[in-house]
Amino acid sequence: MRPNARRTTLADIAQAAGVSVATVSKVVNGRGEVAPHTRARVQELLHRHDYLAPVLRHPETTGSPTIEVQFKGGLRSYVAEALEGIMDAAAQAGASVVISKATHAPHWARDLVSAGRRAVIAVTSVYTAAHLRELARAGLPLVVLDPLHLPDSRVTSVGATNFAGGLAATQHLLSLGHRRVAYLGGAAMAVCNQARMHGYRAAMEAAGAPVPDGCVRPGEFTYETGVLGAGALLDMAEPPTAVFTGNDEIALGVIETARTRGLRVPEDLSVVGFDDTHLAQMASPPLTTVRQPLREMGGAALRTALRLANGEKTESHHIELATELVLRASTAPPGSGGAPRQPR
């Protein structure tokens, strides 16, 4: 809509649909007593003409703001901890949160506005240019938490210092005396995975430790990637003595594959994760990992979404929070338990 264009009114929609203003009002407010075919025709006209109810045109009058939080895939430990941070921050700010799986059905952004949403937080979800255009038309701000791809300059995002985390994890393994260090990561094109891998490679290069072919393996951020990837690494003629993984779930898969092959962690194989979810502390042995401040990231995303919903500006379109290496029992010098066992 052009800045000076006249806003569409209920009367305009009623005239176009051939119904009364009262009927259109019932549809806008979600009331019954409207025939399904009439409701569908009115809703289509509301979408086509970018109609916003007056109360939604002035967010400051709506009371407690409601933020839509969308995620893709399963509710894994990583997502759950980020959601905890979002909900804690919302409670402190007096805001409400609605959690859903991203579907992007037709008119999804307009439907969110009609339902009273003030902004969207996407947890690792991928948004295309078409999605961004629809959000812009609906006037709905978007904040992406830990983006999978390099965020568009029009998109505000919150992430962590993934490169520094990858660097610290690998330097720790090198400081223990490991030289054959592998990296098992998530999706090859995911920006967070690339940053962690580049941190790994930078540490290896600085130490003069070569990265043999096959020691860098992308996959998904899943336990299954750890199981299968570790199997491939341990089948190498000279298997690695340490593995840095793209997240804690992959690390647990590596530990399980080592166990099934009669290898001990960390005596025969050191393993480092990334995220520091609850899984890291429950692992056997407890997992050395890079702490990604997931709850703090969720809180920052919520506060940023509220600022954008209120029409405020942000200092940067991307916010990064610091990572930290957390030492536990899954790493040790190579061969620390005596002569290394050969994998079965």
Rank of each mutant, 00 (worst) to 15 (best):
H104N: 13
Q194K: 11
R137C: 12
G165Y: 00
N193F: 08
A80I: 08
A91L: 13
E84A: 13
A169R: 01
C215W: 12
R117K: 14
H149T: 14
A138P: 00
A188V: 15
G186E: 04
L167W: 04
G166N: 08
P141G: 10
M87Q: 15
R110K: 13
A95E: 03
G185N: 03
L112R: 06
V144Q: 06
H131A: 09
H172V: 10
E84I: 12
A119W: 01
V79H: 09
S175L: 10
Y78L: 12
A195I: 09
A138D: 00
R137T: 13
A190F: 10
Q194Y: 04
T170L: 04
L174E: 06
S77A: 15
P151K: 06
V181H: 01
V191W: 10
V158K: 01
A90K: 02
I86E: 03
G185C: 06
G166S: 08
I99W: 04
N193G: 10
G166A: 05
Q171V: 11
L140P: 01
A195V: 09
H178R: 06
V126G: 00
L132S: 06
S153G: 07
Q70N: 10
G74Y: 04
A95S: 10
V113Q: 05
S175N: 12
I86Y: 00
V211N: 00
H198E: 15
G185L: 05
A95G: 06
V144C: 08
V191N: 10
V98T: 15
L184V: 11
V155Y: 07
A187I: 15
S157F: 04
A209M: 11
L148M: 14
R117A: 14
A160K: 02
I121H: 01
H104T: 12
L173F: 01
L150Q: 14
Y127N: 12
G85P: 01
G185S: 06
C215D: 11
T161I: 05
M189K: 14
G85V: 07
G214I: 09
T161P: 00
S125L: 09
Y127D: 07
L132N: 02
R180V: 09
T103C: 10
Q70D: 05
F71T: 05
R110D: 11
A188H: 13
L75T: 09
H149C: 09
E84Q: 13
T103M: 14
G94M: 09
E134T: 11
H178Q: 07
R196P: 09
A160N: 02
L148N: 13
M87S: 13
Q70I: 15
R137E: 14
E81Y: 03
G186I: 06
P147V: 06
A82H: 04
L174W: 05
A168W: 00
E134M: 12
A122H: 05
A169V: 07
A130C: 08
R196T: 07
M197Y: 02
N193H: 11
C215T: 13
A90F: 05
V158N: 01
Q70F: 12
Q194M: 14
G94N: 06
H178F: 06
F163A: 07
L132R: 11
I121E: 03
E205N: 12
M189I: 14
H178N: 08
